[in-house]
Design a protein around this nucleic acid. Sequence first.
DNA 1: GCGCCGAACTTGACAGTGTCTAGATTGGCG
DNA 2: CGCCAATCTAGACACTGTCAAGTTCGGCGC
Lengths: 209, 209
Amino acid sequence: MNAPRRASYHHGDLHRSLLDAADIELELNGIEKFSLRAVAKRASVSHGAPAHHFGNADGLLTALATRGYGGFIAAQDRRENLAGDSPRAKLAASGLGYIDFATAHPALFRLMFTSERTDKANPSLADAANAAFEKLTRHIETIQHRDPYTDQLAMADVLACWGIAHGLADLMISGRLGRATFLAEMSEEERDAFFAEIILRGVSPQRGV
Amino acid sequence: MNAPRRASYHHGDLHRSLLDAADIELELNGIEKFSLRAVAKRASVSHGAPAHHFGNADGLLTALATRGYGGFIAAQDRRENLAGDSPRAKLAASGLGYIDFATAHPALFRLMFTSERTDKANPSLADAANAAFEKLTRHIETIQHRDPYTDQLAMADVLACWGIAHGLADLMISGRLGRATFLAEMSEEERDAFFAEIILRGVSPQRGV
DNA sequence: GCGCCGAACTTGACAGTGTCTAGATTGGCG
DNA sequence: CGCCAATCTAGACACTGTCAAGTTCGGCGC
């Protein structure tokens, strides 16, 4: 079928293969030990091959980050589909999906949000990041009946919720939440409820409507 | 006075000089482009010299992160001293100091919180990080009259406030808060008040007492 | 006051990295 | 069917961190 047809000089779909290999290498070694040559070796290709598809190492990482946002949004959708119908339940679920993704793909999450090896001017990457942000603003808009882009109070809710979800996710994958010993003793449902409650602290008490 | 007495073979206080040089190099180039040889060159010393004081590059970075926590706590103290007497005002001020430090030393902040090049098992580093955490727990304890280490509700407040401050700081230094355009138009006082209000959302409504 | 020991520092070598250039291969269009 | 251009390889270069061996010298014992 799609066996690695590599009796040939050309590859077939090296672009995707390189992204897959880079993904694996990234999670294995982290961004700070990321090696382009190791990626090439994993894809069974010469060390110079990636340049033709991605320009340089940062280009490959930028493409990987862009692809990452797909999984990022999918993780949030998955949670939302399991949640209740209330706008607040959807928002909390989205936040849990945010944390899910970070814990499942910590290195990729770091690449997407805190690495400097990504070209933030890249239009595809910017679009992908923007889509994720849009998702959040619409949740808040549904809850507060105000457009965060024009209403400063609604934007405060956006930043608050984002900050909480992002902060918890980042602290979690750097192992900083270990001091809250009871977290480890909780069941999955209890932990979800615990984080959901914290995330919802980000939205200010409903005014009007 | 303490001019660089470097007509001599030995250096005098290379340990400190290397940390200073590493600090500068870190903020200039970021962690991902950090070069040990560039640090040595900046300290006017051979590329092999750092090894004698710090073992390897990660050892130097670990020491730098440890020293960083001093400035981190100092930044929070500075804000607290300017704040009102109420426990909540102190907590909010501490959070603003958290953000102050991140924006003033973004690369060092990254090294301390999200880099993998730091030896988290190092006792000095662990102690320093712990002191910063202790600071936060005592703020919450003062507000809620409960010990976060034994009271799960109080610990939720700790994680919530930490998550918000950390998330905002991290998003801010990665330039993600630019979409909230009104932030740039605010005066310093307005922005402080804006963030302080958000940070205080982390503490749940006071129960009892 | 003197010698010498060990800490501090230098120097050179080594494997590994990303990027560039020149050359080999080959799928697919005219 | 032939050739072009995209794809991939192979080698070279400068740079990285680490290691081992050699050089310098402050400060302790006598």
